[in-house]
Every structure is written in structure tokens, then in C-alpha cells.
Design a protein around this nucleic acid. Structure first.
Lengths: 153, 153
DNA sequence: ACAATATTGGTAGAATCTGCCAATCATAAT
DNA sequence: ATTATGATTGGCAGATTCTACCAATATTGT
């Protein structure tokens, strides 16, 4: 993939806001005719710049009002321990995001569950089963102030 | 909105994974004919369970490889201070997410920028301008281990 | 200026969406 | 059991949209 020009960025911004925009509407929003607009979108998809599309679901309406940030420290950072942890994380549905952090080589996870009781379950049944964890620190979110799908720039 | 039944959940799961699925494909994936399937989708949209659709963009490919988690503490929690902060946050594009946290009444922000230099700029020009901030703590992410659009359950 | 390459706009046929209608299913009351 | 009620379903036709081509235009490098 070569560089993104301003039209590509306009397309990306529009589709981050409205992922199901029809190609016709998209094309007039970026001052292009439908053909080249669609071709640009497909190129962005093939190049992996656009990695997919997703419905944005209201956690509470879906019955998952509890968000917890969980910080994890591993006791060793051998390849085995790290791989085991990251593989486990990939398979746990309640973990929506997981970042490898600088500093104390921690992980930061965003966990979504239906209730506090379910969170305890989650820790016991999913996290404590993973080997090599040195410490856990849970921070509960009271609510979401902002959540954007549109990258800056 | 009444309760979500299993078909609704199947629809939601499918659209979280593939937000641009055509209604025809979606309908056969949930064992329904296109008409009732589309009606369910529209109902979920109107009820706000499906809050929208978004293209998922690769941060690095888009030129924004740096993710920082920024913890903020306000010096007072008067209505004015809180409102000023949350309004400011809403208007800053680099802040992709902001949560109000339990514990020390902090905020946790996910910030996306192009470089460390830009992050310093961001702190100076955007965050330090907001009144009422008592402390800041930045944690840098080395990378993303997992990022899911599909809620559990 | 010229050639080579990339990008654009248009078009027709296939696929899709949309808003209706009648048929079916589930529930509850008599 | 039977009937009535309401909700949900499936099918259909017109309008919209997508897709894969083509020639025309713009851009780039020499």
C-alpha cells in the first residue's frame, strides 16, 4: 500500500462514523463518482487499513453494564509465560481489549461482564487458571464519558 | 424495547463481527427470511441496542502507532470542574475513550497519537489547558495483544 | 514534450433493499 | 377444545445499490 492521500482519509473518516454508508452517498461525500470511490474503499480493505466493519452495541442495553480495567503482572517474562498468557487472553470472550504496557511490563485489559458477581466468577474461573500471573489489580468504571470510533488527524 | 431473544443475539453477534453483512446473508445466518431479519435489525437500531456501525481502522497503517493510557485526577469534584473536564474531553479528537473510574475518582483516557513528540504536544496544548486537573499519569502501550468488537454472552 | 502509469467517470446487468400484504405461530381467555 | 388477539413470519415488486468492465482524463518521470 502506498501513502494515503486526502481522499483516502476522507473515506476513512466517513466510514468510521457511518460504517454502512452506501457507496453512492460516500462517493458524493468525498467528491468522487461511485466507481473510483468504491475502488479506493476496496484497496483500503485489501491493504488492511480498513480492517473490517462492526456494529457498535450499547453494553448496557445488551445486558453488560460492568466494565473493569484489569492490570496484570507476570512473575516471569519468559517466552513460555508470555505466550501462555496471550493465548489465554485471546480465548476469553469477556476480555474486549488487551494491551502490552511499558513500565513494569504489565498488561492492561478491558473486561466486560454483567455484574460484580460475574466479575468474581470471571477472575476465579478464567484469570486464576492462567499460569505465571504475579499480581492483579482491578479498577471499576462508573461509566463511559466518551467513546469514539474516529481516529484523529 | 422488550427483551432480546436468541435470534436478536445472533443478529447482534453477526453484525459485531461483520458490520456490512448484507441482510440476505445475515438472514440465512440466523435462520430467518430477509423480511423479518431486516425488521429485527431496524428495531435494534431504533431501540439503541445497535448504536451505529463503524469501519475498524488499523491505527498503525493510518499513521497513529502510539497509544497512551492517561489517568487524570481532578483537584475538586464540583459540578463545574467535572463538567468542564468532560466537555473538554468530548472535543479532543486524540481521546478515543474516557471512563469515569471508581476508587480515587479518576478518569482513564485512551489517547492515540502519531509519535512521542505529538504526545508531548497533546499534553501541553490540550490537557494542560483544562482547569481543575490535580495530577496526570501516562502509561504507554507497546502494542495491542487483543481487540474485540464482539461482546461476550 | 512525450510516454508510461495511475486515476477517473460512465454504463449495464446482477444483486440488494424497502415497504407493503397475507399467512403462520403463540398466547390466553372462554 | 375452540376462538380471538397480537406478534412474527415469508413473499413480492419497485426502487436503490453494487459490481465489473470500458474509454477518457490526469499525473508522473524522463
Amino acid at each position: 500500500m502506498t501513502k494515503l492521500d486526502e481522499t483516502d482519509r476522507k473515506i476513512i473518516r466517513a466510514l468510521q462514523r457511518e460504517g454502512r454508508l452506501s457507496n453512492q452517498h460516500l462517493s458524493q461525500r468525498v467528491n468522487l463518482s461511485p466507481s473510483p470511490c468504491l475502488r479506493r474503499v476496496r484497496n483500503l480493505e485489501r491493504a488492511g487499513v480498513i480492517d473490517g466493519y462492526a456494529a457498535i452495541v450499547d453494553q448496557e442495553a445488551y445486558g453488560l453494564p460492568v466494565t473493569v480495567f484489569l492490570q496484570v503482572r507476570l512473575d516471569r517474562h519468559s517466552q513460555d509465560t508470555v505466550t501462555a498468557f496471550e493465548t489465554a487472553v485471546a480465548g476469553i470472550d469477556e476480555i474486549m481489549e488487551c494491551y502490552l504496557m511499558a513500565g513494569d511490563r504489565d498488561y492492561l485489559l478491558r473486561v466486560v461482564v454483567a455484574s460484580l458477581a460475574d466479575y468474581e466468577e470471571f477472575i476465579r474461573r478464567r484469570i486464576h487458571k492462567i499460569p505465571g500471573i504475579a499480581s492483579l489489580d482491578s479498577s471499576f468504571a462508573f461509566g463511559v464519558v466518551k467513546r469514539s470510533q474516529v481516529l484523529p488527524g
